[in-house]
Design a protein around this nucleic acid. Sequence first.
DNA 1: TAGATTGTTAATCGATTAACAATC
DNA 2: TAGATTGTTAATCGATTAACAATC
Lengths: 209, 209
Amino acid sequence: MSTLPQSTLRRMPIYLHFLKTLRSGDNRNVSATRIASALNLGEVQVRKDLAQVADGGRPKVGYELTALISAIEAAIGCKDPTVAIIVGVGNLGKALLEFAGFEEFGLKVIAGFDIKQDVLSSDRGKPVLPIENIESFIKNNSVKLGILTLPNAAAQKMADKLVSGGIKAVWNFTQTHIVVPDTVALRNENLAASLALLNVQMKTQSECV
Amino acid sequence: MSTLPQSTLRRMPIYLHFLKTLRSGDNRNVSATRIASALNLGEVQVRKDLAQVADGGRPKVGYELTALISAIEAAIGCKDPTVAIIVGVGNLGKALLEFAGFEEFGLKVIAGFDIKQDVLSSDRGKPVLPIENIESFIKNNSVKLGILTLPNAAAQKMADKLVSGGIKAVWNFTQTHIVVPDTVALRNENLAASLALLNVQMKTQSECV
DNA sequence: TAGATTGTTAATCGATTAACAATC
DNA sequence: TAGATTGTTAATCGATTAACAATC
């Protein structure tokens, strides 16, 4: 159970979501075979992935459903919630601020920050605060994760502020390449990259037809 | 210039964005070395990536900037725009509908669709239309790409509608695994997977400190 | 010429797939 | 027992990195 390979880790949330839909049915056990066919994945791949986070898989029976769900939740770290803030409450920031789906994976977004006055103190349940107070807010609320959804130009400056406030991880939704210390985890969410893949895939597929 | 490896393709938009920022400065040429150090990538990796889409790299000089930009744009297919619609105009859908950044990569989102009456016909420049007309709309406007940002439960049903309308690609932002014919390109955008990676990375990094 | 940079060929690394033995 | 399923060991595949020759 040491450290999972990235590729395995990336599939865990997919398994988790599927297993939860099974649970709402009347299922007690589930086999790797079944998961694989439901999600269009290789049978061996699923089995190997599961073997890395769970044990107790029994031949002819499979895994106990609730135990497996619990094991995956532990592996991807959504048992104890990660407290997060959104920096930049534009359209995307607003969407992520209000997105309920994150809680399923242990993310607890508690506030948004912005410079613009007109988005401030909107009563959506989650407060939108002026950006000046961000460093003390991080400290006082032990915020672990900062989500950057602001204009490219401001990205690095705000990342620096987050770091000096003591943040542990940065999730960068801007196009800008940003730099953080080694002690801070960084992930770039690159929608453009996905789009490029899809674009090319689409074009080569229709050529073949 | 046949088909690029996925990994290479994924980095192209990152190069592209960086090169454009260089162009607004006073640069005529750029070397792989420079790109690599600016983006924290391996020098050889960048060189190999560029070699796959462009030629004309000259020792001691590098690549001609505008030619390189043009070559990358051609490779990732953002020269002729892809017409797209958004299905499900909730928070995320709204964000993507209004997101200007996609145009840089050749995506032209022309409309949103929803069942809810209150989001319909909002005058944000891009119309939000009732979902009943979606199939004929796809045909009449030669829409190539459908972006799914709706509740999980409706995902497969709407994907089917898109396909029967003649869509060429589906970009799925829901958690649900959906099935489309082989002739249709499909890409699942999995924010939960990214979150899981970040979560684990963060936890292991702080353990080490 | 010397040095920076290119492009290529070989070596390494990681992830996926295939083959098979173990077990309920 | 037979068959489905598990887990493991070996083979394949793709991507990254290292080493080096070519060139302006």
